[in-house]
Every structure is written in structure tokens, then in C-alpha cells.
Design a protein around this nucleic acid. Structure first.
Lengths: 234, 234
DNA sequence: GCCGGACTATGACCGCGGTCATAGAACCAA
DNA sequence: TTGGTTCTATGACCGCGGTCATAGTCCGGC
């Protein structure tokens, strides 16, 4: 089943999207035009589901506008955010190759447009362009490194350090103004909303951040970096 | 730098290895012979390092005999086992493609022989055989799923459930006799040796396992499965 | 306006599991 | 044999952080 509402994206728009998209660097204009020609856009309202777990993969998804998150929902209801995708970032790189159901869900965190490519079209394109496949493997490598790094953090770091690391990552991605709620930050750090709120209060008292409803401002990026990297040289 | 000692493997042996190796299914005899022709074996003593983190990747590694582990060593000294590789299982799938340094180390857990393929040779072979690349992406997909699943377990499961899950996985891989120490199990479950020993004592009192020095025997696989999957339908 | 829901904020409680300490058993090498 | 190392075993302690409860605040919808 396909979700969202159809939305117009002309070929030039689609080409511009793929031109700068993660995983499609180094392609010629014709190759970009080829994959852009296979894509079509769909619009999602804030909070709308883009894909569900445990269903066979039918599309390759690439965010064209807005922000989407990919997350795992555990049997007991805990949600863990796996990926925040801006314009130009793909939501699923494995599924299009294997086609098999996986455990991830995706939803729009704000009004968003997501480009779709039918799985078979995507597969055919990828198999004709080894450079794309090598790009994808290297993105997957980063994903695995990132997952391993989260595992290490969960085992040996406390909540404060994990949250600081999340904020530091978000600083690089969104700049000093981060429009996320404490619950969303908690799902990124692998902890509870309460602990996140407590920790943010501490960081606020230290003058490192300011925070309001659904927003965090990084006041002292340097202190954040110091807190974050401290354990590395202790 | 290349570690281990050179060891003779004739072409037939190497071909037999790749024939059944993870990621090389569905290749013709000639293709198998081709990759086997590029490989050479090296021997490692128990405990010997196979590769170190933070060095550029120079080889693709495939276990030919014995058992090896791939692990992450955190700055503070905690070790987390990422992969146990038997005969036919590759140690590194990302590195050969990107060539960039990563965070993983590998060491032989017993006397082992590991087939090496020079990175450039491996890359050339892979780019000529898209089927291999798709296989590799699907293995990477499994690795990512497994990492995510460990993350969820670390966030919301207690040590006992994680350890049971580890034992259950090892049961599938090695059968009912598992030759690992409690420290090694701890590094798999993401906990301490002490907690592992305590938990094993509990499982022993329940009659589910028996354990001795460096060995665990699964007495009641069914109970293990029940303990392990319980939370799924609660 | 008013009301309901989402978000923030904070206190109290307490249990899991990490840390430290101690000790005995098994194994190996000299 | 002896001595050293590794592995198993278990007790005591206690702090982080999850859970539950309460309340205040902001926002959107009717």
C-alpha cells in the first residue's frame, strides 16, 4: 500500500533533487535524468506514516522537502529514532535491494514531500550504475558505524553524555536552532522523556543551551563539544 | 601491515572455501575459481590480532578454519563483540569498498586460517559481479538489523534477557555446546563478567544450562527459547 | 472565550546492575 | 611440585536512571 498524497514535481525539480542527493554523487546529467524520470513525489502531513514495518519493500524513498524520521518500534512500545532525513537523504537503502520486510517505520516530522522510485526500477538503475552501489555500500558502512557507536554509548555512557552527543550531532545537521521536543530527543538518545528534561535543565543551568516548547538553542557549541569529547581523553 | 603467518592453501581448497562462503552464493565455477585465484591464506594463533582499527583497509578477509571475532574497543577499554565468524564467514565487508579506516578489530579465538584478497583485486572482482554486491548489501542489511535489535535490547531489556538472547543465537550457530568464557559472553551481551556469572548461576539453578570452565551446555533449548521470546507476546 | 491535549518541569521512590573485594578452582609452564 | 594466570563464584555497596505522580504552561480547535 502506498501512503501520502500525489504531488506534482516536474522533471527539472526531480533532477535537481537527485543531483544533490546522498548516494547519487558523481553521476552524469543523463544518468541523473534517468533516475529522476523514474521518480514521482508524494506529500505527507506532519505525523503521517510514510512506510510501516513488516511489509515487503515496494519503493525507494528520498526526501525532497521537509523532515522525516525512520524509527524502530519495539514490541513493548518504546520508540527509537534511527535516522532523521532532510532533503536529499534516502529513507531506505536496504529494502530496495532485498525486497524483504524489515523492522523500520518512517513518518513525516513536518509537512514533507518524498520522492518514490518503484523497487524494480531502482534495482535496474542500480545494477547499471556500479558507482551508485558503491556509494550505497559506503553509506551503509556509515550506518553500521553509527549503530555500533550508539551501542558502545548505551553500554558505557550515562544519559547526559548520550544526550550531549545527540545535541552535538543535531548541531551539525540543523545548526544552533533545533526544533525537536524532549520526547523526540529522548528517542534519539535511547532514554526517557523525564531524564531528558532533567538533563536539559542541567545544561540550561550551565548556560550551554536554552530551550523552549519544541525547540532547543545551542548557546555554547564549544562547551557542548568539550562535554561530548571529554571522555575521549580521560 | 599484514599479520599472521603464511600458510599453504591449494586452489581447490580455496575454491571449496569460496564455494560455500557467505556472500558468494550463486556464482559459476569459473567465477569461484577467479576469486579463489586471488586469495591466499594466513594462519593465526589463538588470541592473535587479525586486523586493527584506524588503519586503511588493505584486504578482504574470509575465515577458512577456526573461529574469529570482530569487536569494538571503546576508548575506556570496554570491549564489545560485534561478530563471531566461522569458516566461510567474512570479517569485513565495508572496508574493501571504502578503503577508509574503521573502528573494528579482529582476533582469532582459536587457531585459525583466514583467506586474504587484496582490496584492489576484490574491488575489481566485485564490480564485475553485481550479484556479489547485492549479496553483500543484503548481508549488510542483516548486520544493520542486528545492530538495531541490540540497541533496542540495551535500552529496554535487562541483562538476563540479553544474555538469554545471546545464548539462543549461539545455540543456532554452534549447537548445544558453546565454548566461550563468561567474559566473552559478557562482551556479546554488553554487560560485565560478574553480571554474566550471576545470571548463568541463575540459569544453572533453573536447569536450563550447565557450565564449566570456558564452556556452556544448553540443557533445555526449549526453555531458553521461551525465556527469550516471552517478551514478544507479553 | 473555554477546554483538551501536548509539552515542560520536578519531586519521590527504588531496583537493576556496575564496581570493588575476596576467594577458590582449574590449567599451564618451568 | 610450585607459582602464576585465568576463570568462576559470590557478597556488599550504592548510584544512575526508570517509573509514577503531580502540576504548571502553551497552543490549537470548537
Amino acid at each position: 500500500m502506498m501512503r501520502g498524497q500525489p504531488v506534482d514535481m516536474d522533471l527539472a525539480q526531480r533532477a535537481d533533487l537527485f543531483q544533490h542527493a546522498l548516494g547519487f554523487q558523481g553521476l552524469s546529467q543523463e544518468q541523473i535524468a534517468q533516475i529522476a524520470g523514474l521518480a514521482f513525489g508524494r506529500r505527507f502531513a506532519k505525523g503521517e506514516i510514510i512506510f510501516e514495518p513488516n511489509l515487503p519493500c515496494r519503493f525507494f524513498y528520498l526526501v525532497a522537502r521537509g523532515l522525516a524520521k525512520v524509527y524502530i518500534c519495539s514490541p513493548s512500545g518504546m520508540r527509537l529514532t534511527y535516522l532523521l532525513a532532510n532533503r536529499g537523504e534516502p529513507l531506505n537503502l536496504i529494502g530496495p535491494f532485498t525486497g524483504t520486510p524489515r523492522f523500520l517505520s518512517a513518518e513525516a516530522m513536518e509537512e514533507a514531500v518524498v520522492a518514490h522510485v518503484r523497487r524494480q526500477d531502482f534495482l535496474r538503475f542500480a545494477s547499471q550504475h556500479p558507482a551508485v552501489v558503491v556509494n550505497i555500500i559506503s553509506i551503509l558502512g556509515r550506518a553500521i558505524d553509527s549503530a555500533n557507536s550508539r551501542i558502545v554509548d548505551l553500554v558505557e555512557k550515562r544519559v547526559e553524555q548520550r544526550l550531549v552527543r545527540v545535541l552535538f550531532t543535531l548541531l551539525a545537521k540543523f545548526g544552533t536552532e533545533i526544533n525537536l521536543t524532549s520526547s523526540e530527543l529522548a528517542e534519539l538518545a535511547g532514554t526517557t522523556t523525564e531524564s531528558t528534561l532533567r538533563t536539559m535543565a542541567r545544561l540550561r543551568r550551565l548556560g550551554i543551551i536554552a530551550s523552549g516548547r519544541g525547540q532547543v538553542k545551542i548557546i555554547q557549541p564549544a562547551s557542548l563539544k568539550k562535554l561530548h569529547s571529554d571522555p575521549l581523553w580521560v
